[in-house]
Amino acid sequence: MENSSIQEPFDLIRLSLSERVFVKLRGDRELTGILHAYDGHMNLIMSDVEETIMIVDVAEGAPAGQPATVNVAKRKMEMLFVRGDGVILVRLPYCRICRCSCNQVSPPSRT
């Protein structure tokens, strides 16, 4: 904490510029991509983006507590503007404390 001084939350995002980040969005969506720009609303511009959409199907008549089936839809986009009001969380590409990759966001699977 002392060596990499962070005075405000946006400093954290600044450290992620040109790195691959993980973004959690409203509507059960997640993105990974390389961050190129952001602003105070958390509007983002990212490239090489993979979007994951979680679609939770609760089986009809299933007993309570039975895990719902989760369908995952993925798609890729080359260059994407993301409107900030949908952003919940941004995860950094690496751990700042040990500079290791324990927090590494894996690149999108090549399918």
Binding site: H36, I45, S47, L80, G86
Partner: peptide
């Protein structure tokens, strides 16, 4: 306000310029 994403033509986006501008003008 009703926009979720805009897919941009990547060949017309200078990512280096964007990053420099963001670092310079980023919210402080």
């Amino acid at each position: 306000s009703v926009v979720r994403y805009v897919q941009l033509p990547s060949e017309h986006v200078d990512t280096q310029l964007l990053e420099d501008a963001t670092r310079r003008g980023a919210p402080t």
